[in-house]
Structures are given as C-alpha cells and as structure tokens.
Computed example of a mutant assay.
Amino acid sequence: MNLDRAVLAFAGLVVLVSLTLGHFISPYWFLLTAFAGLNMLQAAFTGFCPAAMAFKLLGVKSGNAFR
C-alpha cells in the first residue's frame, strides 16, 4: 500500500467511525466528520496532509499525491 491509498483509507475510516459514533453516542461526533472533510479539502489545494506525514514516519512508501 502506498502513501496515497493509506491516507484515503484512513480518511474513510475516520468518516465512518465518526458517523457511527454520532448516530449511537452523541451528535458532537459529527464534528470529526466535518474536520476530516475540511482537512481533505485543504490537502487537495495545498498538498499538505498531517496524516501523510505520520504514515511516512511509519515507513509507508511514497505515492504520487503526497510526497
């Protein structure tokens, strides 16, 4: 798995978990979904993604979108 796919998988996981927690626990968890969406939007324009930096430190090989 390269860095791009790892970031996308992690973003999808965060969205699904926050939606589940928002439905069953508290609606405040929907703020995590909003944060994930905003982070993906800014990463699309700037190329900066904190999750990509974390995965790179863990040794995930580089992809095309995040270097």
Rank of each mutant, 00 (worst) to 15 (best):
T33C: 01
V17F: 01
F30N: 10
S62D: 11
A54G: 10
Q42M: 05
G37Y: 15
L13S: 07
S18P: 10
A65G: 05
L58R: 08
T46C: 15
L13T: 04
M53V: 07
F55N: 02
T20A: 00
T46R: 03
F48I: 15
R67N: 06
K61H: 11
T20V: 02
R5G: 12
A6N: 04
L16W: 05
K56S: 06
G22S: 04
P27A: 09
F10D: 02
W29V: 00
F24M: 03
A52C: 03
F35A: 04
V7Y: 02
N39R: 10
G37L: 14
T33P: 00
M40A: 13
L16P: 09
N39E: 12
F30V: 08
M53E: 15
L8S: 10
L3Q: 11
W29S: 00
S18K: 01
L8R: 11
A43Q: 13
R5Y: 15
L57Q: 08
S18R: 01
R5M: 15
A43H: 15
F35T: 07
M40I: 14
L8F: 09
F35L: 09
A34K: 10
F48C: 12
M1G: 14
K61N: 08
L32R: 01
F55D: 03
L58K: 07
V60H: 07
K61E: 13
W29C: 00
F48M: 12
L41E: 05
A44G: 12
A52I: 06
F10Y: 15
P27E: 08
L3D: 13
A43I: 15
T46E: 11
W29D: 00
H23C: 02
F10T: 03
N64Y: 13
A65M: 04
A44F: 05
I25Y: 00
K61G: 06
R5I: 12
A9G: 11
A34Y: 09
T33A: 00
A52R: 04
T33S: 01
T46Y: 11
L57R: 14
N2L: 04
M53H: 12
Q42I: 07
W29I: 00
K56Q: 04
L41C: 07
R67F: 09
P50N: 10
R67H: 09
L16E: 10
N39M: 11
N39S: 13
A65E: 07
M40E: 10
G47M: 07
S26Q: 02
M53F: 06
L8K: 14
L31M: 05
V17D: 00
L58N: 08
A36N: 01
V60C: 06
L3K: 14
M40V: 14
K56H: 09
G59T: 15
L3W: 10
T33M: 00
D4V: 06
F30E: 11
S62K: 08
G12C: 06
V15S: 07
L31I: 08
G37V: 05
G59R: 08
A54C: 06
L32K: 01
N39D: 15
L13Q: 03
W29L: 00
S26A: 02
S18A: 05
F55I: 10
W29Y: 09
